[in-house]
Nucleic acid binder design. Structure first.
Lengths: 114, 114
DNA sequence: TGCTATACCTAAGATTTGTAGGTATAGCAG
DNA sequence: CTGCTATACCTACAAATCTTAGGTATAGCA
């Protein structure tokens, strides 16, 4: 009933996913991000908290995210949202990722010169 | 005239690319792989030797590749080819990568529930 | 009382990669 | 013949990212 943990494929995509999710929803907290990713991938992809929280802290330290803590139902939530620099960076990284994936596909499909 | 080195996007794709290239060409040597990747991506992607050679050695140690050294034009070349286990592993990793990319796309495009 | 879900966090280690070197031959330009 | 570029291999160290494996705490249900 439990899907296997993520393979170690493609490290480096986590922060891009975080930025993209926050582009779309304006404000999210950590646990919500883990659940959203599970939902969007039908449970096939799971973000571990040991990766997520350090990544969020780094993005905040880099000035791309700001935080606001709220208490909901007796539990603390730390909401993250994009700064102006975060919006810019999100666009840049998505473009970079898109270019990378095109190149990756060019290598894996091996169309030319054959 | 020199393209910037690869961003740190998507670590973990190097060994998959190696396996895929060897699926297609049966036999390649290290330097040839770096040139092939440059060619396939119009110079946009460059595999560094500091990443490539350790990766090749690991794949060989894992029993996925075998080597054969030849001297061509006075220079030694170390040709790599897939073992039987290497062929199997190549197929597995390509399938895993494909699944991962679908999930990644599901997160980045954010279609459902909006 | 205990388990699950919610919600945050960190430390230690593994893995992968980039940077920065090193060695050596061949060939061409000056 | 000297120096530079291309070819062809390699390693060591550091940086970055992620997994594993914990820890803390509240709420709710069995």
């Amino acid at each position: 009933m439990n899907n296997p943990p993520n393979a170690q494929l493609l490290k480096g995509s986590l922060s891009v996913m975080i930025l993209r999710l926050l582009e779309d929803r304006e404000q999210m907290y950590g646990y919500e991000i883990t659940q959203k990713v599970k939902q969007l991938t039908a449970g096939e992809m799971a973000i571990t908290e040991g990766a997520l929280y350090p990544a969020l802290h780094k993005l905040e330290a880099d000035g791309l995210l700001t935080t606001e803590t709220q208490v909901v139902d007796g539990r603390a939530r730390k909401y993250y949202s994009l700064t102006k620099a975060g919006h810019t960076e999100a666009a840049t990284r998505l473009a970079d990722l898109s270019a990378f994936l095109q190149n990756l596909n060019a290598v894996l499909n091996l169309k030319p010169s054959l």
